[in-house]
Design a protein around this nucleic acid. Sequence first.
RNA 1: GCCUUCGUAGUUCAAUGGAUAGAACAGGGCUCUUCUAAGGCCUUAAUGUAGGUUCGAUUCCUACCGAAGGCACCA
Length: 557
Amino acid sequence: MPFMDVRGCIEKAVERALTELGVTSGTITLEHSAELSHGDYATGVALKFAKQSGKNPRELAEAIVASLGVIEGVEKVDIAGPGFINFKLSPAAIVERLDHARTDEKWGTGDALVGKTIMVEYTDPNPFKQFHIGHLMSNAIGESITRLLEHSGASVLRANYQGDVGQHVAKALYVLLERGTTEPTIEEISSAYVEGSTRYEADGQIAVAINEINKKVYDRSDPEVNEMYAKGREITLAHFEDIYTVLGTKFDYYFFESETAPIGMEIVRAHPEVFTPSEGAIIFVGEKYGLHTRVFVTGLGLPTYETKDLGLAKLKADTATFDTSITVTASEQMDYFKVIKKVMEFVMPDIAPKIEHVTHGMMRFAQGKMSSRKGNVVTGESLLTELTEAAKARAAESRAKDHEKLAQEIAVAAIKYQILKQAAGKDIIFDPARALSMEGDSGPYLQYTFARTHAILDRVHVANIKPAFDAGTEPTDLMRLLARFPEIVARAAREYEPHHLATYLIEVASAFNSWYGQVQILDQSKDEPHKVAIVEALSHTLKNGLSILAIPAPERM
RNA sequence: GCCUUCGUAGUUCAAUGGAUAGAACAGGGCUCUUCUAAGGCCUUAAUGUAGGUUCGAUUCCUACCGAAGGCACCA
């Protein structure tokens, strides 16, 4: 950290004080004060350990404070309420941080994960199928987690795992071959899948034919199937790339089920002591461990998703060296993943401890909104397109040069913010009107606030004002909030919870807008470089914060 | 049936066992000759039910009620 680690100093001082008083504390909890009037940090240790020390909480608090000594960067320590100890940072410590906010490109970056390599797998759409909303959620959450980890010093490997073999592929291929299309469009491919699925359910003969194609895709025995397969796969993958560009993701590794299937099969064959034959299939009896029993190889001798996932884990480890491998999926796979992890403990004990699973909820739609047209589900793409269309009217009146691009940036912000503002793992009730409304708690609100700061900074540049903080002035609440940014990022990264950052950004943006409403920042009559310095610090905080959430931050709107 | 996750203003979300449970939207009332009104200011309103642990529970435990998801050849 390039600035004083006041938080660390306080924690150490409190810990030492507790030890001197004969209290065994373990780790102490220091929190950001909910009320800035209380100070910057607060701890309830005196309440927690009162009993153990034999004192009442206020007495213990006084004893702790008495033996704290001087802590650099702390201006005031006091005891409040039932026995909270409040710490207030000195103006010098706040200004030191905000000067970093103003000038340091890396503002917000920590060092908790320096030297670690982490692979994060997310998005995971399937060729021959649409890019649906679950993929959008996985991408938004996965991309922001990778950026949080990067801002904690880790090197991150972005991985995308795509199902290019399996029944869904056969369903699409059956219809495409029947239609006799030579150069299918992306729309034709996804409609072929939808049609194939319906007919698979409705007609037993077609189901047999589709299963036949499924087998051919695995064994590559039919040139006609091979050709259509190659074409369809290439077209969907190229189309997904366009979506990743809009969303701001660039993957380092692409893994495919066609590669992981044979590796997985080999693993299953090599461990007869782990798997059990049953009714023609090969299964893992998870019930022995309080988990689900799952099929790894079907009665037809084909690998299931389970087996492919084992192959994937091995393929990942063979491809890159990492300390941790995180997979982001929908929460419906939570129990499934426990089974896979248990199997890995037996078949790849060196990799198993590195595997982590992060889940996200489902997106649901507020009633009556965005009702899907008959036979046309709301996909990730259609959501992006509809919101971009809706944003165009506003964008047309904006100061941005490229209104089309701005509309798209607003749409991405609207969607991503809705996903990232709440704790991952919970379902999201998505109301497009609200997401786009730009009023209050929204992605566009953050963008608008950033654009405002940029408008001011443009004028500052023209007027040649040099931003600087007044030494000795009492820092405002906004300044104290801004100083927290690196610690917010660190916590969000530690917990894999981007929403801590999203809600923080709304808090600072709202504090800024309130100040902006009361104060003339650029006042011709007097030179007030500290106000400009605050705007600069905020602007960079929003810019870096939005960047970590992978939300675009246009300078004009 | 068994297992997992979750129940917070009318609605959508916050809250690291702690201080007066925070926002936003919707409703009501103000606010642009001033740096972007996509803004700001004021205002009404909530912890599913019943117990328990604790100095202190939205948070931990138990039961009930309600919601979502999972539970053998789909992913």
